[in-house]
């Protein structure tokens, strides 16, 4: 539910990213057959890929641990996701694997954020600022 809520939040800023001529790419880590359902649930129509090997997540040193699922932000975000109608439908990917955001401009990283726990996401305003 938390992951879908994040993508919905980003989708709502799609026009802003389009105006900035920025490409948005969402990368999950479940199997490819879950991509269509994820699109249907979130309404996200942009680029959507998956890396079930987790190689990209590992290269970027994104956190992977059980404790990352048990923090305060996780509970707070779960409540927010639930209150806005995003019930978790089951795990399609590695539940212990955290994600993050990388903004790349001309092959150079200009912004990086590694989520510390489930429900911790890069603030949208920071992402947009990095794209300007």
């Amino acid at each position: 539910m938390i992951c879908r809520r994040q993508v919905v939040d980003i989708k709502e800023q799609m026009e802003t990213f389009n105006k900035l001529n920025v490409r948005l790419v969402v990368i999950g880590n479940g199997t490819p057959n879950f991509i269509e359902g994820f699109r249907n649930d979130t309404g996200y129509t942009g680029d959507l890929y998956t890396d079930p090997s987790l190689q990209s997540f590992q290269l970027l040193n994104f956190k992977k641990s059980i404790t990352s699922l048990l923090g305060f932000k996780t509970i707070k975000s779960a409540l927010h996701a639930l209150s806005t109608g995003y019930m978790q439908k089951g795990i399609q990917g590695d539940a212990l694997q955290q994600g993050g955001v990388v903004v790349i401009d001309s092959g150079q990283p200009v912004y990086f954020y590694a989520n510390t726990e489930a429900g911790d996401h890069a603030p949208l305003d920071e992402i947009i600022k990095a794209c300007q």
Partner: peptide, 16 residues
Amino acid sequence: LWENQKTVLIFVRHFG
């Protein structure tokens, strides 16, 4: 994914 324009890569935990 990023060869032609500035790109935001959003890595999500899973598709849940």
